[in-house]
Simulated assay, not measured.
Amino acid sequence: MASEPATVRRILHIASWYPSEVHGTLGNFVERHVQAISTLNGGEVWFAAAVPAGEVVPANTVCDHGTYTERIFYFRARKPIVWQVSRALLRAAEEATPFDLIHLHVAYPAGRAARTLARRWNVPLVLTEHWTAYHAEQRNSVPSWRRWAMRATGHAASVICPVSEDLASSMRAFGITGTFNVVPNVVNTKLFHPSASPFQGSTFNALHISSLRDDQKNISGLLRASRKALDRCDALRISIIGDGDPQPHRAYAQSLGLDERVEIAGEIPLVEVAERMRAADALVLFSRYENFPCVIPEAWASGIPVLSTDVGGIREHLTPERGALVASEDENALTNALCTWAKEGAPSNASDLRNHAEAVFSMAAVARAYTEVYTEAVTRQTAAQ
């Protein structure tokens, strides 16, 4: 299994979302957190993956990543999922040596097992949260029993680490009290970096990367704004890429007369995402709601600015030196901003963007931040005993 220096803490990462054979990109930001944290701490990551009906249930997997071990447990999806997730994780714990700390990534559905193991082993529980369900516009759609479970997990945590201040505020409004310490998403700044030889061409290439979920990412609104912008700006080029289904968006683009003017593509490997970032002049997002998506610091690490809607925690980092904000649903504002950037260039400095990404979102920066969180969690646990 993974080698661990004797002086580091053994962390058990329990993930509610994580990439697996069921969904290859689900919770990939959780995986990146684990990778960063494990540069300074040892341990394992466990994920219980529900397999939908009609799909073959894969065998459980164990993978040694050098600094941590990854264990994925597969089961046939049946309701209530939370009980099956808990059963799989608690069964795994029967054969495990107790860890120094449990780090739960997203409160539901793995929170019940994380709370149980933290009590059983008498170790601190740290919660990292990414979920937009805490925000006012979404929390009423969460069943009352799930809200109770999410609050119970939040209250059991020694330290709560939302990925943005905006999410921390929403979690407090949701009814969760405790010690909050914001730690952002992490970016592999070795993979995402500026081009060694920037190309100054006559076109302005705007890139969109997302899940392609229209209810959140508002691809249809982006396409309508793109139609107006392309009519005004001959130099503008737009690419929309994501790990969702691109076909409905291609059909809508065709209805707008954009099928030959806007590239719309499905999932591509992360290495290719980084290449596309380096070839782009800007990242464009038109989301209705967010916390702080990973693609924003990935763009900055690549030396390009970001044009985004002013939602969630995006404004906490997206200052005028790093891009521009428009109101959610304001298609005219997005059109005007795209045209201005295409004609005049985006007001940003690639080196400054890169330096900010390195200082705040790099693996080293996030690893240091979580090591401090773990020290605080252990201190609080010791003082409470």
Rank of each mutant, 00 (worst) to 15 (best):
F192V: 06
S287E: 01
S226F: 09
N185T: 13
E290L: 03
A251N: 14
G242T: 09
I209N: 00
L212I: 09
I241M: 12
R261A: 14
G221P: 07
K217A: 04
E272S: 09
P198E: 03
S202K: 14
S255A: 15
Q216S: 12
A229N: 11
S226N: 07
A274D: 07
V182S: 05
S210Y: 01
L270M: 13
P248Y: 09
A279Q: 14
C294W: 00
Q200D: 14
L283M: 06
C233Q: 15
A274V: 09
G257E: 07
G266N: 13
I209S: 01
P194T: 02
A235L: 11
P184S: 14
I219C: 10
K190Q: 15
F204E: 04
R224W: 04
G244T: 07
Q216H: 10
R237G: 03
G242K: 12
I176R: 04
L223W: 05
P198K: 07
C233W: 04
A279L: 11
E260W: 06
A280W: 01
C233V: 07
I268W: 01
V187R: 00
F174S: 04
S255C: 09
A173V: 00
L256Q: 10
V186H: 04
I219T: 13
V186E: 05
L191N: 02
V182Q: 05
P297C: 09
A282R: 00
V295A: 02
L236R: 09
K217L: 04
S202L: 13
